[in-house]
Computed example of a mutant assay.
Amino acid sequence: MLIKKICIIGGTGFVGRTLANHLTRKGYQLRIPTRDRESHRQELILLPTTELVEGDVHDPQQLRELVDGCDAVINLVGILNERGRDGRGFHKAHVELTETILATCRAAGIQRYLHMSALNADAERGPSHYLKSKGEAEHKALAAEGYDLHVTSFRPSVIFGPDDSFFNRFAKLLKLTPLVFPLACPEARFAPVYVEDVAEAFVRSLNDPATYGQGYDLCGPHEYTLQQLVEYTAQCVGLQRRILPLNNFLSRLQAMVFDFVPGKPFSTDNYLSSQVASVCTNGGDLQRFDIDATAIEAIVPRYLGNHSMRSLYNEFRREAGRH
């Protein structure tokens, strides 16, 4: 199977931008759909061999036009929260979109599909709408494996890197909270995996027939409790904060209150997801791709140490863009 051109759905996001850089360095031509081309021009338009195209990937006809001429499709779309609380937003973003993409791949004669799932994704036993919908989407993707479409799925733990929504979000929240920081689900466990390692796993699987029909767990080299990660974040940004661990009742109560806060910094669905440890058995599958997992200690201090300066710079860019 000769792959020259790839459509990355969700390519304007945190992982997508990193993966686009990896693929362009390998010489692949990329097409990245977006609903707002102008808002992503500075991040992606300068990448060689990359085409940023406006379109709605949820519309079957538009998606068919977006993948036309491509040899492979990568689906990175995922949401951590929905506007409502009944799971319909998760189902649309994860399950319905995956169904549309798989049908479009077959109609367009595309034979390679890479799918971003999540650690603990399980359609039957997932404790949250997020994990259930991710599990259902992954099941549908892997079930589509066959002679006319070859599928590989990836299940990462929380992904970290300079533009992540994990360490950066906690850094912002810590700055907004004086002296004491109340932390829900402090004993939740994670094995954070570096975004560059995740992107490289995608790249190395692309032309590897041994990965067809397979799903891979991706984790970093160490496990941490959420409290340890938040304490480390405070250390990296130079803040002295007392982390106040909340018990299960108060954690769930905080989640219920935050369900109604704009932007949902924490939600009941997040709380339910955190009840399952986001860690890999036997360290995960990065070694399958000859990738040495990168520790947070090697990367996180570099970008959190400059967090204030980057925040000011990003705010300046936003203000400049308005004029």
Rank of each mutant, 00 (worst) to 15 (best):
Y212I: 15
Y212D: 15
H40E: 08
R41I: 14
L183W: 02
N314D: 14
R25F: 09
E315K: 01
G13T: 06
G84Y: 04
N247V: 09
T104Y: 05
I243H: 00
R35H: 10
D285C: 10
H323I: 15
Y232P: 12
H323N: 15
D122W: 00
S273I: 12
G89C: 08
S267Q: 08
S251M: 07
A107Q: 10
E196M: 04
S128D: 08
V158C: 09
V53W: 02
E196L: 01
G263I: 11
T233Y: 06
K92V: 14
T211G: 07
S311F: 03
G13H: 03
T34N: 09
I159M: 08
D208T: 07
F266I: 05
L80G: 04
Q29N: 13
L63K: 00
L47W: 01
I110A: 04
R35K: 09
G135E: 07
T104F: 10
V15F: 02
I79K: 00
E319D: 09
F90E: 09
R35Q: 14
D68N: 12
L176I: 08
G284I: 06
T49Y: 11
K140T: 13
V257I: 14
R112P: 13
V230Q: 02
C105T: 09
P182I: 07
E82F: 07
S308I: 12
Q240K: 05
Q254R: 00
F154R: 02
V67M: 06
F249Q: 01
E200N: 05
N75Y: 05
T98A: 14
R241V: 10
G10N: 04
V158K: 00
G55K: 03
S157L: 14
I74D: 08
G135V: 09
Q235N: 08
A137W: 03
Y271I: 11
I291C: 05
S157Y: 06
A277S: 15
F154K: 05
L114N: 06
A171R: 00
L46G: 11
E200F: 01
P178V: 06
D148A: 04
F258S: 07
R302N: 14
L250A: 11
F90Y: 12
K132V: 13
V257D: 09
N168F: 11
A295P: 07
L131T: 06
V95L: 02
R322D: 15
K132F: 05
E99M: 10
H58P: 11
E138M: 10
L179P: 00
Q254P: 10
L149E: 03
P265T: 14
F202D: 11
A72P: 09
E145A: 10
G109C: 14
G69D: 10
P156I: 10
T34Q: 02
F266N: 04
R83F: 07
V151A: 05
E43N: 01
H58V: 08
V180P: 04
K5Y: 09
G11A: 03
A320N: 08
L47F: 06
H129R: 02
G238V: 12
R25L: 13
T24S: 10
T98V: 13
L97Q: 04
E54K: 00
I74C: 04
G283Y: 03
G13N: 05
C219V: 13
I296F: 05
L246N: 01
P221E: 13
H307A: 08
R64E: 15
P162Q: 03
K4Q: 15
I110S: 06
Y194Q: 07
F166Q: 02
T104W: 11
C7G: 06
H323Y: 15
T104N: 03
N270D: 12
P60T: 12
S133V: 08
D163S: 00
A277Q: 05
